[in-house]
């Protein structure tokens, strides 16, 4: 399977949300990293064919997705950034409704719905109204509905928003286990969501992919640019204003341990450290 984005552009009046973006994706997890307003959600909506590109094309195995219609939507699972639901529906009824929309037979819908609700830990509350759920529970329901039709292309827009760390780990493992035979495009601000499972990371800024590659390749961009130093608290405040500080931790004797992303040494006592993906994020979006 090959999903090709060929110079995809989206304009809203004079504003360029996605700017001549080209990339190719196949099976595996693709992490889409970017700050708010980078164009991630717009890109995902175009991949889902619920927004039309101003220019360019999105092709699945050489065929424009716009022309595939139902056939393409049959392969798709989508969790939007702001997951919409019907407050007076129960998760059970909601899943059966989405299953009907996705073309599952009644029997298959019941079986798959129960399986997925168990998977996301909502089986026991399946007959309670969604309006009584917490944010995390609603998000889990959103993940479950996206997977109803065993999609070959799974688009998840900030899927771990509202989930606690344990739930995020569970979700990460779930995605990782199912990504062998499908394409998963996942956008997030939480780099740990993709750091360990993504085949490829796409760093997006101002509507363009500014860097793409495996986690290792992405990290190379900031190799030699990540420093740690222990400085007095007053100096730490000044450095936080001046440099791109990834982490600030108070240690003993009124001193502060800083993690700084910078081309050169930020302080005499600074030592180079191994970069992590979060450093890449800060390097591109805070610098």
């Amino acid at each position: 399977m090959e999903l090709r984005l060929d110079r995809v552009t989206k304009k809203y009046g004079n504003k360029l949300a996605v700017d001549r973006l080209s990339t190719v994706m196949g099976h595996g997890v693709y992490g889409l990293l970017g700050a708010n307003g980078a164009g991630k959600t717009t890109l995902m909506r175009m991949v889902c064919d619920i927004q039309t590109p101003t220019e360019g094309a999105i092709l699945l195995n050489g065929v424009p997705v716009r022309d595939m219609g139902e056939e393409y939507r049959d392969l798709l699972g989508y969790l939007p950034q702001n997951f919409g639901y019907y407050p007076d529906f129960t998760p059970w009824r909601f899943m059966l409704y989405i299953a009907a929309l996705k073309g599952l037979s009644k029997g298959a819908a019941k079986e798959k719905s129960m399986e997925l609700l168990k998977e996301v830990g909502l089986a026991e509350v399946r007959n309670k109204k969604i309006k009584t759920f917490s944010g995390g529970m609603k998000q889990r329901l959103g993940i479950a509905q996206a997977m109803l039709n065993d999609p070959e292309i799974l688009i998840l827009d900030e899927p771990t928003a509202g989930l606690d760390p344990k739930e995020r780990v569970r979700f990460r493992n779930l995605i990782s286990s199912m990504a062998q035979e499908r394409l998963v495009l996942l956008s997030t601000h939480i780099v740990s969501d993709v750091e360990y499972i993504a085949k490829k990371i796409l760093v997006m800024k101002a509507g363009q992919i500014i860097h793409e590659g495996s986690t290792r390749e992405i990290l190379r961009a900031v190799e030699g640019k990540v420093w740690e130093c222990v400085v007095p608290a007053k100096q730490a405040d000044a450095m936080a204003q001046q440099f791109n500080v990834g982490n600030l931790k108070y240690v003993e004797d009124g001193k502060v341990l800083l993690r700084v992303i910078r081309e050169g040494k930020p302080a005499e006592s600074a030592v180079q450290v191994e970069p992590v993906l979060e450093d890449v994020y800060l390097y591109y979006f805070e610098g």
């Binding site: 889902c48 939507r73 702001n82 639901y85 929309l101």
Partner: peptide, 17 residues
Amino acid sequence: RGTDALILTARYGKTLE
């Protein structure tokens, strides 16, 4: 509600629904 995104990306969202 934002449910249009779910409906329109489902197989029958633009047709039977």
